[in-house]
């Protein structure tokens, strides 16, 4: 099994790589298009700011590569947000795999949404054997609304999308690499897709 983690200035690359190693997989951290294309699975991590990150992805032409991938792709946190159309963070046009807008949580409430929250309405193979209302770890100030793509929902201030899917593209707003045993199962499910 060849797993590529897309290399860019995302803060959680190390943790994602370690999480895969704990599953017995040695991922390749790379921005080489050929290597990414030839992998069995691709992970698009993300911690950081949307506009800076998109600029970097454009520079490396990764914004063109990612939507063309045919194998299962998993976006995490900012990775998920950048797979949408547009982010209000830095007013940033994004990759546009999911036709969704990324909005900011209202400033009157405690933002970022940090901590363990439950996910429900779980759908599809990514959540195989994951019980409804399992706790996973979130850290984010921006979110996507529930939509046709939602395969898991959560609620903080308002209901929002905790995970989405369109064809071979999967994405989670939470951090499976930091979500304890449940996170391990979700990553394992992704690897076994």
């Amino acid at each position: 099994m060849k797993v590529a983690i897309i290399k860019y200035n995302a803060g959680n690359i190390t943790s994602v790589a370690f999480a895969l190693q704990r599953l017995g997989i040695n991922p390749e951290i790379t921005d080489d298009p050929e290597l990414i294309k030839s992998s069995d699975k691709v992970i698009f991590p993300g911690v950081g700011e949307a506009s800076t990150t998109m600029n970097y992805l454009r520079l490396k032409k990764l914004n063109q590569l990612i939507p063309e991938l045919k194998q299962p792709v998993l976006g995490i946190c900012l990775g998920m947000q950048l797979m949408c159309n547009y982010s209000m963070e830095g007013k940033t046009p994004c990759i546009g795999i999911f036709d969704e807008l990324i909005e900011k949580f209202p400033a009157k409430e405690k933002v970022p949404h940090v901590g363990w929250n439950t996910i429900s309405n779980l759908k599809g193979d990514l959540f195989k054997n994951i019980p409804d209302n399992s706790y996973v770890y979130f850290v984010h100030s921006y979110f996507a609304n529930e939509s046709q793509y939602s395969i898991a929902n959560s609620n903080y201030i308002k209901p929002f999308t905790a995970a989405m899917q369109k064809e071979n593209f999967y994405a989670t707003q939470f951090h499976p690499e930091r979500s304890g045993k449940i996170g391990v199962l979700i990553l394992k499910n992704f690897i076994e897709l």
Binding site: F18, Y137, V139, H175, E177, R178, S179, G183, V184
Partner: peptide
């Protein structure tokens, strides 16, 4: 920190 990150799956 590197060793901790390698082993621990919570923040």
């Amino acid at each position: 920190v590197h060793r901790i990150a390698k082993e621990i799956n919570i923040p």
